[in-house]
Design a protein around this nucleic acid. Sequence first.
DNA 1: CCGAGATAGTTTCACCTGTAACCATATCGG
DNA 2: CCGATATGGTTACAGGTGAAACTATCTCGG
Lengths: 163, 163
Amino acid sequence: MHLKPKSSAAPAPGDATLTLAGFLPYRLNVAAAAVSEGLARLYATRFRLGIPEWRVLATVGEFRSMTATAIGLHAHMGKVKVSRAAAALEGRGLIRREPNPQDLREAFLVLTPDGEAVYREIVPLALAYARSLTADFRPGEEATLNRLIDVLLRRAGEMGGGD
Amino acid sequence: MHLKPKSSAAPAPGDATLTLAGFLPYRLNVAAAAVSEGLARLYATRFRLGIPEWRVLATVGEFRSMTATAIGLHAHMGKVKVSRAAAALEGRGLIRREPNPQDLREAFLVLTPDGEAVYREIVPLALAYARSLTADFRPGEEATLNRLIDVLLRRAGEMGGGD
DNA sequence: CCGAGATAGTTTCACCTGTAACCATATCGG
DNA sequence: CCGATATGGTTACAGGTGAAACTATCTCGG
């Protein structure tokens, strides 16, 4: 790479420069982390739940009954994480396993009455949190954000697929 | 919690329901993870760099010379992570420490010639990746996304501050 | 000049996570 | 019916991570 040595401090006139603070992947991560952290505080302090447990609880609550693999697929978690989160929730009596007689390898996870109570208590908090996040948005902006996130997801997925 | 037992399957007519797939914090995390993963593949395979190393490299490359604490502040990393990433980069000869004679506790990190070479090679790849992520955006949408991310960051920060 | 904090950075420890190995059951071809 | 292969789920292991403890230096009040 035979470049004439730049004597001054100007940041590479020929090359494009990268400012981390304006770099989309970085910005996305920071925003997601900040939002997650705030949400996690909600159920961590009040319900002693971690993020994986919350995701499993939310998914089971949403679908009433689901196998671990399906939960992982839906909630973007590896089966190991689902397994551990489910074990923790079962240990605390929040979910129950219903073995599938048609296929003894799998079991459907369902909320226990205790689990349902916790679920009904958390959901409004979570929804309120999400609403307050976008409280300063103007009409239509939340829909726009969701659309753009979908575009990003699709693009990122396509690029990853070329493995 | 004296609720009349719901006999049917309809998902709680009184309560608001939560669909994970439409829940903003979840969606943000999934998108950020997908984008990060794609980007990480770039420098992981080609340069054997992890995300923390990349962030430190990018920050030092951008500011020419910076202390570990300042890097952590700028790149949203704890000082532990910065310390380890810097040690790794130093071990591979990509950065160098210049102790500050005015304050022997700190040292400025700067790129070595090798580090600069890697930096100049990565930056265009990273920029191309970011550009291709938003390739399907329509004019103005990227600016909108950035603005909305800033709003989310501010809101999440404010809510966290009430500790 | 000295001792009580504050600050930069590293190390320790306990925990979380993913990959890979593993066990049980199911399926499918012969 | 049986062995090979696939699939659901758990366990073992190795690496990354943050909170807290620690070291070294600096600053400030007396």
